[in-house]
Amino acid sequence: MKYKGDSYYIEKVLEGKTNYFSYIVDRYQNIVFSIALKVLGNREDAEEMAQESFIKVYKSLHTFKGKAKFSTWIYRITYNNCISATRKKKHYFTSTDDVQIEDESQEMNLDGIPEENRATYIKTAIKKLPEDEYTLVLLYYFEEQSIEEVSKVAGLSESNTKVKLHRARKKLYKILHDMLQDELHTIL
């Protein structure tokens, strides 16, 4: 069934037709889960957190004024939930902040990545980014959200978001480059 747009389902749920909320869950579950998985680090916690986030969305649906995009609102709730959970648990995740990126790093030709492995390569590389940069990249490139929307989710200023996205992209190229080098060494 074709997704009819967020406002249609929101209206139905607010009318008391709770089961319409499942369309919203189906539509956003992958991104919500991906963000939770990146921040929390394991599938079990991520699934629990994703469920919690959707329940929070359901409970506060009446407060959604439509000023921002609904997806931005959901991702912001998810991101905040996950960050608070990690703070509570004092759970630290591995970060790639130590990835050295040169100021004038060489533009990598993405065609160099074997076509059949491109999806796997990019997925693996993105996962190596720290959770904030991962979220920015996922929302900006995959979800095609604007800088303004991404900045709202991450709670950053627009200029800060741009800087972080710029850095994340550079890191991503570096990671992809290293992955290809490793592959090459393995082959040789």
Partner: peptide
Amino acid sequence: FEEDKELKNLITNMTPDSPGRDFSGKVM
């Protein structure tokens, strides 16, 4: 980063992680 269509295409074609089976059923 705004001009990098190549990277954008590559990421758009990526399949994000998905939760376990019947996730939406559990939430509902």
